[in-house]
Design a protein around this nucleic acid. Structure first.
Length: 430
RNA sequence: GUGGAUGUAGUUCAAUGGUAGAGCACCAGAUUGUGGUUCUGGUUGUUGCGGGUUCGAGCCCCGUCAUCCACCCCA
């Protein structure tokens, strides 16, 4: 006998979870396509050299890679961004720019698993490439906001900062050489606290003064307006103008859209990844801050520089779907309760009526009602339990050609109804 | 990858190195107007897996697998 085990960090998905996941994805796709975004897909396996690019130290260790039967060095994608860059470089001539795509699929990382962190997980990416403008930045932000609202999560805050401005500031105080390390440390502020960040900064740059200046830059000031903050940061960066202007434009657009209250300028947001050059953002749920960012991203100068000479600026964002799903569950969001397998269960009571059961089921299905037929004449109790286990709201007694009783399984109440009324009833309460 | 904690019935939890238990859930039957009550009976099990110590291991030791936590990194 072989043990039915699954690998560390991998898991099965039961119908109750899978139905919710599919619905969340459907909701997201609806929002994305309403903005004119189109779906793409890329292979799960790529040449290792394509995925590793210049060879990032940490990703090397985390990537699943092996030699295939043809002797090729291949690897499983560990995110959707790198394959997207390769995809853009290879299909540039087929795609009109600016190009807006979304991509929702599994990725793999050989990392040590923890709660909400697995070796196989879903990512949901959406990007606009081929344009560098405040409108594109804002559209991504707006779409994030719409997506969360569509999922029934209206209590969220998107924290915004500007990587370019921060880099200008670091150069201004002569810390540009350590930019990558500094970003990584600052990114941990929320987690390890101010003092720990300061200590680590001093260790890296060897200057108390510079460390203090960096902390000052990233610490939000009480009672300051967004405009004031932008001016202050600009000043700290040596009266930087270009990035400052972009930030102002974005906030002006968010204001005109009337959604500025969901956004906050937060200079402590840096994102650890070093390819960001413009605006960066992270999304936090008001009622579940401990879960961390559920959607983050930013603007990058050049997506596909590894694969093509063509310059491709872009802005994009990524939703951690697994993290989001556990958030929906914890917050008891209505989307998390939509796990019913069908709308109505036809009860099996009398074998001689079977043709009528099947015919009724077909009629209901044609009217757009999801209809499940119990498959044997077990005790009624068992049939009710089946319905409940599948979260089916209604059971139907088919007693004759035009003789129906619709039972609300939760309320345990019966109603004699015509087939037409049954359809209306079932659809009306969905 | 490094360090730590944990692993007992479907589930929540017990059991001093001395015969593996309870509630809930589940199944069968009786009662109940086509479910909720009540009663009777039943399975709750390779104590994650494999070794070792011991007369004897759920308990102690080693290994292994998995989960959780921290680091690292990130979603």
């Amino acid at each position: 006998m072989i043990q039915p085990r699954v690998l560390k960090g991998f898991r099965d998905s039961l119908p109750s979870q899978e139905i919710v996941k599919k619905q969340v994805i459907a909701t997201l796709e609806e929002v994305f396509s309403s903005f004119g975004f189109v779906p793409i897909d890329t292979p799960v396996l790529e040449y290792t050299e394509v995925l590793l690019g210049k060879g990032g130290g940490e990703t090397d260790k985390q990537i699943f890679h092996f030699v295939d039967n043809g002797g090729r060095d291949v690897a499983m994608r560990f995110d959707l961004t790198v394959p997207f860059a390769r995809f853009m470089a290879g299909n540039l001539h087929k795609l009109p720019l600016p190009f807006k795509r979304y991509h929702i699929d599994k990725v793999w990382r050989g990392e040590n698993p923890q709660k909400g962190r697995y070796r196989e997980f879903y990512q949901c990416d959406f990007d606009i490439v081929g344009i560098d403008s405040a409108v594109a930045d804002t559209e991504i932000l707006l779409m994030m906001s719409d997506a969360f609202k569509a999922m029934g999560l209206s209590r969220f805050t998107i924290h915004l900062a500007h990587r370019g401005l921060l880099n200008a500031f670091l150069n201004h105080i002569d810390c540009g050489d350590h930019a990558v390390e500094i970003l990584r440390i600052v990114d941990k502020l929320r987690k390890i606290g101010e003092q720990a960040v300061k200590n680590q900064l001093i260790e890296i740059i060897g200057s108390d003064e510079a460390a203090a200046a960096i902390l000052n830059y990233i610490t939000p000031k009480e009672g300051e307006s967004t405009t004031q903050t932008i001016e202050r940061l600009s000043e700290l960066a040596g009266n930087e103008e270009e990035h400052t202007k972009r930030l102002k434009e974005i906030f002006a657009l968010l204001n005109s859209l009337g959604i500025a209250s969901n956004f906050i300028l937060d200079p402590s947001i840096t994102r650890g990844l070093d390819y960001y050059t413009g605006v960066v953002f992270e999304t936090f749920l008001t009622d579940l801050p401990s879960i961390g960012s559920v959607c983050s991203g930013g603007r990058y100068n050049d997506l596909a520089s590894l694969y093509t000479k063509e310059e491709l600026p872009g802005v994009g964002s990524s939703i951690g779907l697994d993290r989001l799903l556990s958030a929906l569950e914890e917050l008891d969001a209505s989307l998390a309760h939509s796990a019913s397998s069908s709308d109505i269960l036809i009860l099996f009571l009398d074998e001689t009526l079977l043709p009528l059961y099947l015919k009724t089921a077909q009629t209901l299905r044609e009217s757009g009602v999801r209809c499940d037929l119990f498959l044997s004449d077990k005790k009624l109790m068992a049939q009710y339990k089946y319905g409940e286990a599948h979260e089916i709201p209604y059971a139907l007694f088919v007693k004759g050609e035009d003789d129906f009783t619709l039972r609300n399984l939760e309320q345990r109440s019966d109603h004699e109804l015509s087939l037409k009324e049954i359809v209306a009833q079932v659809k009306g309460t969905l």
